Computed example of a mutant assay.
Amino acid sequence: MKQPAGVILAGGLARRMGGGDKGLLRLGGQTILSRVIDRLEPQVDGLALNANGDPVRFADIGLPVVADSIDGFVGPLGGVLAGLDWAADRGADHIVTAAADTPFFPCDLVVRLLDAAERGAVPIALAATPDGRQPTFGLWPVALREDLRAALVGGLRKVVLWTDRHGAAEAVFDDAPDPFFNVNTPEDLSRAEGMI
């Protein structure tokens, strides 16, 4: 399998943080988003940002910004679909997604997702911890994008409901502290400062 493209999911509403872009919050002298880019970019072949609204606010990061193609807020699967469409235009076979508010995810995320999919002989792999799946961190095949589009148009919103239809392997990360700690609240941002 060739190296997948990467897509950072930043299309959420950030309600618990008072709205806005959580990825643009400062953490240890740089934005959370720049930390996510630094971790994911070396692992993938090309990188895009999934975000809705005016893309100009991300002009300084130098990445293509792809918006959800399904109207209304449809959750992370809308961002996965936008990423799959972008990747298809580039000739990529797969994407790996990462959340824009999760600055400490593993630097071997992609290789472990690829290995889990290969060992399971399935098209999708999701990151997991001993506490459960981390469905915004996954390996997704471009070949399933029209199936995903139809599912979203049909009203499906839960990631695991769609992934379970196609078979999804799990790549379990039991690193400590929580490798998928994400910044949802001002308190989480303070905790993240202490984790640096």
Rank of each mutant, 00 (worst) to 15 (best):
P177C: 11
A171C: 04
T185Y: 04
A99S: 13
A98G: 09
D174P: 00
G23L: 05
G132E: 13
D131A: 14
G120S: 12
F104Y: 13
T136M: 13
V36H: 04
G132R: 09
A117V: 11
P64Q: 11
P135C: 12
L24M: 13
P123I: 01
P103C: 04
E170W: 00
L161E: 15
D21T: 00
H166P: 07
L77D: 07
D115R: 10
A48R: 06
A98K: 02
L40T: 01
A99E: 15
R26Q: 15
N182A: 13
V80Q: 11
R57Y: 07
H166L: 07
G154Q: 04
P179H: 05
D188R: 00
V159R: 09
A121Y: 03
T185G: 09
D188W: 03
S69H: 02
R119E: 14
D108G: 12
V44L: 06
F137P: 08
V65S: 12
D38Y: 03
D188Y: 02
G53L: 05
A116G: 09
Q134D: 13
G132P: 10
S190R: 15
D115T: 02
A99M: 07
T163E: 13
R90G: 12
L33N: 06
A192V: 05
T97R: 04
L27W: 03
G18R: 05
V66G: 10
V36M: 04
A10Q: 10
R165V: 04
G29T: 08
A192G: 12
R26W: 09
A128Q: 09
A176T: 08
A151M: 10
D45M: 10
L161D: 15
A192C: 07
G11Q: 04
G155E: 13
L161R: 10
R133A: 15
P103D: 08
E193C: 03
E187D: 15
V172H: 11
W86D: 06
A125P: 08
T163D: 12
V159G: 10
D175Q: 10
I124Y: 00
G6A: 15
D38N: 12
E187H: 09
V36Q: 07
T185L: 06
A168Q: 08
D89Y: 00
G23W: 04
V172C: 13
P141L: 05
V80T: 08
I61G: 08
D101A: 11
V80K: 11
R16M: 05
I8A: 06
D54I: 02
L189A: 03
V142W: 02
E118A: 14
G28C: 12
D131K: 12
A10Y: 00
R35S: 06
A171V: 06
A67T: 00
L189I: 04
H94T: 08
I61L: 09
F58Y: 15
V66E: 11
D147Q: 10
D93A: 08
V36K: 01
A98D: 05
G155T: 11
R57I: 08
L77S: 02
L25W: 08
G46T: 07
R133S: 15
G19P: 13
G23C: 03
L40Y: 10
I37P: 11
I37Q: 12
G23T: 02
T31M: 07
F73W: 15
V44Q: 07
D174W: 01
D85C: 05
L27F: 01
A100P: 00
P64E: 14
I32D: 07
I70V: 13
A100G: 14
W86T: 05
P76F: 04
V36W: 02
